[in-house]
Design a protein around this nucleic acid. Structure first.
Length: 272
DNA sequence: ATGGTTGCTTGGCAA
């Protein structure tokens, strides 16, 4: 079962690219961030036409917005307004597998603005508080034995080789020590496994985002790994493969993020 | 500390 995370940066504008992606990968579940569409205008019919009968979403005008498209039935949809900012940055669902129920949380963590100083930049303050909230949320889950996947645009590249230059980006929001430390603490809350790093050693560069602003970020391969798919240790044996669809950054009218995907082997064979 | 580009929306914000 393939599960995808993609910051699509406007779902309606990117529908043709989403269609191309579905033709290439045909995943069971696609989690989107930055849909940038209010619920009344969500392109439900277009999404269903791609083969996704079970769709959950929450959006707002111009900014943020998250969605989950699925080929298998979803239950327990939940939307959390993290810290009551009114931003649509979280949606979760659950689904059944042969190893039991899996809870899936799709997050769009705040980017945090440009200045890595909470006194000068409220957006950075929001980002740090958002991650603290996530740590606390997962730490305080009543049922610790749940199977949980959390994924999304975390807007943090935590490891040295998750950015093109560790030294040059230490003061750049997305790679500063304070946010990396907080993300690591959040990861420790439920011992989440970074599924892509199961297959790509920490010594190897791995990115999921390339700036729009830089001259030729893809050619120079100056990227960052801002998107992540994490799973609780209970799911580790199910993780068989992880991919980054780098080619989608070179598409016509691309998102600045590309789809990332993890293959979990926990579907009933008969189901497909 | 800026600048650079993109998307939504049509001036300016967010990324």
């Amino acid at each position: 079962m393939k599960i995808v995370s993609w910051n699509i940066n406007s779902l309606r504008l990117r529908l043709p690219l989403l269609e191309r992606f579905v033709k290439e990968s045909n995943p069971h579940i696609i989690c989107l961030q930055e849909t940038k569409v209010v619920d009344e205008d969500f392109p439900l019919l277009a999404a269903k036409a791609l083969g996704y009968d079970f769709i959950e979403f929450v959006g707002e005008k111009s900014y943020n917005g998250v969605a989950i498209l699925s080929k298998i039935p979803l239950k327990k949809k939940n939307v959390i307004d993290v810290l009551d900012y009114g931003h649509k940055r979280h949606i979760s669902v659950a689904f059944d597998t042969k190893i039991g129920e899996v809870e899936l949380h799709n997050f769009y963590i705040p980017a945090g603005g440009d200045i890595a100083d909470v006194a000068l930049n409220l957006k950075f303050d929001h980002k740090l508080k958002f991650i603290d909230w996530m740590s606390q949320y997962f730490l305080s889950l009543a049922q610790k034995k749940k199977n949980i996947i959390i994924l999304g645009d975390f807007n943090i590249a935590p490891k040295e080789h998750d950015v093109w230059s560790h030294k040059q980006l230490l003061k750049t929001v997305s790679h500063t020590p304070i946010e990396v430390e907080k993300l690591n603490k959040m990861q420790e809350s439920l011992d989440f496994i970074d599924t892509h790093r199961m297959f790509v050693d920490d010594s190897q560069k791995l990115y999921s985002w390339w700036s729009y602003r830089a001259a030729d970020p893809l050619g120079a391969n100056k990227g960052r790994r801002l998107d992540h798919i994490w799973a609780t240790p209970s799911l580790k044996d199910c993780v068989k493969e992880a991919k980054v669809y780098k080619d989608f950054r070179a598409a016509t009218q691309p998102s600045d993020h590309v789809p990332i995907e993890t293959y979990f082997d926990f579907l009933e064979r008969e189901a497909f």
